[in-house]
């Protein structure tokens, strides 16, 4: 067999849903009476499944808590059959799981896709590039015109999700070891960010999420503040939101 043929057979043997016929394996692999070729190859097949399912468990701890080990492992097998790893970092293997759960929703818990998305985002934020936050003084020196025209640079370690169903309440119940409430209605926005080496998330009003999205897209402060136009006191709401962003370290610079 060529090297290419050998690797194709080995890959099929360890990633396939069912073991290959013994004669196909014995044509390639050497065995012994104590440990035949098929049993030797099965060691690698077991390790393949174990390692990838374990990586998914690490990325989605609350989903594991909700489903239980066995159901999660079955979900993981279905997922991996459609989405084998394409990245050198095994920790990236779960990147398509939220979308997979949206395509195959659990009828009783359609919010599991949102939960997975929140967990995946927490992982992404943990490894995002660092950036030093700025304080309110960075805006204090601007005159009214300069304030309206400038923009904000948003931390790469902040992501804002707008989800069909709210995952944050379910995440909290699971994290606290409490039985989950029924799915919370949506849409709902949640901010996920890192401070030093710790990841946090918090629910956000939808207009504030839109304002953060505008800021990240390079909008002026005037346009960012306009996102609060539906509030009873838009200026006060914008001021509160901006103060909060600066206090949490979500803003890492000014300018557009």
């Amino acid at each position: 067999m060529t090297l290419a043929e050998t690797q194709a057979l080995f890959c099929e043997a360890i990633t396939g849903a069912a073991p290959l016929a013994a004669d196909r394996l014995e044509a390639c692999f050497a065995g012994t009476p104590e440990l035949p070729a098929a049993a030797r190859v099965a060691i690698y097949a077991d390790m393949y499944r174990y390692r990838l399912i374990d990586a998914l468990r690490v990325s989605f701890p609350e989903l594991v808590r909700y489903l239980g080990d066995e159901t999660f492992a079955a979900l993981a097998e279905d997922y991996l059959a459609r989405h084998p790893s394409e990245h050198h970092d095994v920790g990236q293997v779960g990147r398509h799981l939220p979308a997979f759960l949206r395509q195959h929703p659990d009828p009783e818990r359609p919010d599991l896709a949102d939960l997975a998305e929140l967990e995946w985002t927490r992982q992404e934020v943990f490894f995002a590039p660092p950036a030093a936050p700025i304080g309110p003084e960075a805006l204090a020196g601007l005159d009214a015109g300069g304030f309206a025209r400038t923009g904000l640079r948003i931390s790469p370690a902040l992501q804002v999700l707008v989800q069909p169903l709210a995952a944050a309440p379910l995440w909290r119940r699971l994290e606290d070891g409490e039985p989950p409430d029924p799915p919370a209605p949506g849409p709902a926005a949640v901010a996920v960010w890192r401070t030093d080496f710790e990841v946090f998330h918090t629910s956000l009003p939808l207009d504030e999420a839109a304002a953060l999205g505008a800021a990240r897209a390079g909008a002026s402060l005037a346009d960012i503040c306009a996102a609060f136009g539906e509030r009873e006191e838009p200026a006060a709401a914008a001021h509160r939101a901006l103060s909060g962003w600066l206090a949490e370290g979500w803003v890492v610079g000014t300018g557009r």
């Binding site: 890959c11 790893s85 095994v90 293997v93």
Partner: peptide, 15 residues
């Protein structure tokens, strides 16, 4: 294999 990572240190035939 064909862009798929198997995340294992698989042995080679020594040829």
């Amino acid at each position: 294999h064909r862009g798929q990572y198997l995340h294992d240190l698989l042995p080679l035939p020594y040829t």
